[in-house]
Computed example of a mutant assay.
Amino acid sequence: MKHPLPARPVHIGVLRLSALGDVCNLVPTVRALQRQWPEARITWIIGKGEHSLLAGLSGVEFVVYDKTTGLAGMRALWRRLADTRFDVLLHMQQALRASVLSLGLKADVRVGYDKARAKDAQHWFTHRQLAPHPRAHVLESFLDFARLLGVEDLSLAWDLPIPDAAREEAAALTGEAPYLLMSPCANPRLRNYRNWSAEGYAAVIEHAWVQHGLTTVLTGGGSTQEREMGSRIQALGQPGAVIDAIGNTSLKGLLALIARARAVVAPDSGPVHMANALATPVVGLYATTNLDRAGPYCWRDYVVNRYPDAVREFLHEDPATIAWGQRVRHPDAMSLIRADDVIACLEAVLAASPTRKETESPDEA
């Protein structure tokens, strides 16, 4: 017998810890739940860094879990929520750690992914599973949770909060002049292979500078890999064409920079989804991950997509029949992207959005 779903939930729990791009893609589902049940209480259990990005999201109570604290952190979170019971818990993290964490949470019904999309046997930890949705984008997979609960209006809305301090942080770096934002590196994880070349980035920077008078702001974390990439890009470029902000912004400051940028250029990483959430034009660079599953949702027509070529060349498989979400873990995959391809997409996205106002909200763009 299936566990019944609440017709009008009073308290909704959302369990999604990471990552930055994924939590951005989840926000429209939260907004859809809020529109359907404006009086419902929503508690989102989220990772530490992801919380710093979304802090202040209207109508949401955040409970932060720092994954570096391990079991001790789980126990602390369970104690904090010992007196809390959810009408429904939306288990939206496909990872064993999150499933173990969910065991200490009280809920009348736990909803998770269908077997085809569940990872680490997540369906063993839930009462109800989503209806199958083959070849779904990550954002659509999140919306499937709202669909299952009977939410009718699934229109996209974000309204990410950017505090004045973050806008001031961004303005101190850029002044009032228009700029291109470039985040050259994805998360430096083992066998990630999502980064393009310094030479390619430098060619795009020169084009933006010469043809459009756009300075390029480089952003990213403070890792050695990211700082070295920034230094190589700068060494290849013209003096004055680059502002190096790598390792020098908060996540809210990065949001503010993205909100004011004429466009964003980045590989599959958090900034492409932040830009998507803020209605900032974005050129994504995709070869190791599937654009149709994980591209910037509203800007997929402007992605440089070499994933099918990489699947054929490095996996020797047919892109039409390969497992959905299969990554191409080869260090040469991103070399299939050419500077001319990126420049062409940049020209197209600039033409599609010729002007941007700092005060323009994502849902008005």
Rank of each mutant, 00 (worst) to 15 (best):
K106F: 04
D144H: 13
V111Q: 06
L105K: 04
Q122N: 06
R128G: 09
L139N: 03
D153L: 07
Q129S: 10
G73M: 01
A136T: 13
Q129I: 11
T126M: 10
K106Q: 14
L101M: 05
H133N: 13
G104K: 05
L156G: 00
L96G: 02
H123T: 12
A146R: 02
V100K: 02
T69R: 15
A157R: 14
D108N: 14
D83M: 06
S141Q: 14
V109K: 05
L101G: 02
F86M: 00
A157L: 09
H137G: 11
T68C: 01
S99P: 04
D114T: 07
V138Q: 15
L96R: 10
F145Y: 15
P134W: 09
A72V: 12
T69F: 00
L105H: 03
A76F: 04
Y113G: 02
H137F: 06
L154E: 03
A107C: 09
V151Y: 05
V151H: 03
L149D: 01
R147Y: 02
R85H: 07
R128D: 10
T68K: 15
A76D: 11
R79W: 05
R79N: 13
W78R: 03
A76H: 08
L148S: 03
D120I: 07
R97N: 05
Q94E: 09
E140V: 13
R135D: 15
A146K: 02
A82K: 14
P134D: 12
T84H: 09
L103E: 10
L160D: 00
T68V: 06
A76G: 10
A107Y: 10
H133G: 10
D108R: 15
W124A: 11
R75F: 14
E152P: 00
R110N: 01
L89K: 10
S141M: 13
V100C: 11
A107M: 10
L154H: 00
F142Q: 02
L90M: 14
S141N: 12
H123C: 11
E140C: 07
A131P: 10
S99N: 15
V109D: 05
A157S: 14
A107D: 09
L148N: 03
K106E: 11
Y113V: 00
R97D: 06
L89N: 06
K106D: 15
V138F: 07
L156S: 05
R79Y: 01
D87S: 07
A82R: 15
W158N: 00
Y113I: 00
T84I: 13
S141H: 09
P134R: 14
S102L: 08
E152H: 10
L89I: 04
F125T: 10
A98R: 06
P132W: 11
A95Y: 02
F86R: 00
H127D: 15
L90P: 04
H123Y: 13
A107G: 08
R117G: 13
D159C: 04
L90K: 05
Y113Q: 10
L149S: 00
V100H: 07
L148W: 05
A131L: 12
P134H: 15
L154K: 03
A98Y: 01
A146Q: 01
R135K: 14
T69S: 12
H91P: 04
D83G: 08
